[in-house]
Amino acid sequence: MAVITTAAPAAARARPGRPRRPRYGDLRTALIFLIPATIGFVTFYLVPAVRGAWFSLTDYSVLAPPRFVGLDNYERLVQDPLFWNAMGVTAYYVVMNIGLQTVLAIAIAVLMQRLTRSAFVRGVVLLPYFVANVVVALVWFFMLDFQMGIVNVLLERVGLDPQAFFGDPALALPTIALINVWRHMGYTALLIFAGLQMIDQQVYEAAELDGAGPLRQFWSVTLPLLRPVLALVLVVTVTGSFQIFDTVAVTSAGGPVDATRVIYLYIYQLAFGQLDFGYASALSVVLFLVLLGVALLQLRLTRASESDTN
């Protein structure tokens, strides 16, 4: 899970005055209130994170205790063609998925902004996001079936050849990317829509007075002012996109010929298929670092914290 916010640090800094309270304030009460959450955090986040890092330095099959092997797993990873294939496949997926999804989401958000505030429209657009990945994947798996799928039936009706969407190595990954564009575009659009609400209407009025048409307004007003919001949306959607698993697992399962073996699936197969927990942990450490790097890079490149106005 991920959260977009810029409010947290600001809110946390607020309220420095602590009038006539004992030095430790409500420390005792706070500790009691924090007991359950701390148990959960330490047991299922903090300790596992440390343990995961430790596993990555060991040879570990769960059946026998971990054996320390230094950086062997990382050396193996550098020379593992399947690892590089998985990273490449994942990167390709992210680019297709995020590229199309972002463009469509901006379009939908702008359309909603200009046409309607209806909660019904927003609800419909949002609906796919709340249906399980597995359900979405299977429905599209049927609709895109080579023989029975409605999409191929329609393709044939208009005189085109039916396509093996999941059987063709060149098509399988774009198909999965498109399915997830369908699932996520409405949700992303609503996030961007929320961002659009924050643009001061007076800027548009000023642009209109200067004779800017709708297209010009979009390029010169909407997009630049939306940039901080867009940057945060992208950090979250890209991070999520890198973790694609469910859709692949229930449709193509990595095939044909590794064309959809994304990094999450590869790690899953290493750990739970081959019981190679040490190596799988090393890969997830690398994935974590890649995600962190990509997020920081994005925030830098897009200067997310600054708006063009101030």
Partner: peptide, 18 residues
């Protein structure tokens, strides 16, 4: 809050072991 940055699979493997 920092736990938000950690990808699910990174903690899923040790959690499975636990």
């Amino acid at each position: 809050l920092s736990a938000l940055m950690v990808p699910g699979i990174f903690t899923a493997i040790p959690n499975f072991v636990l």
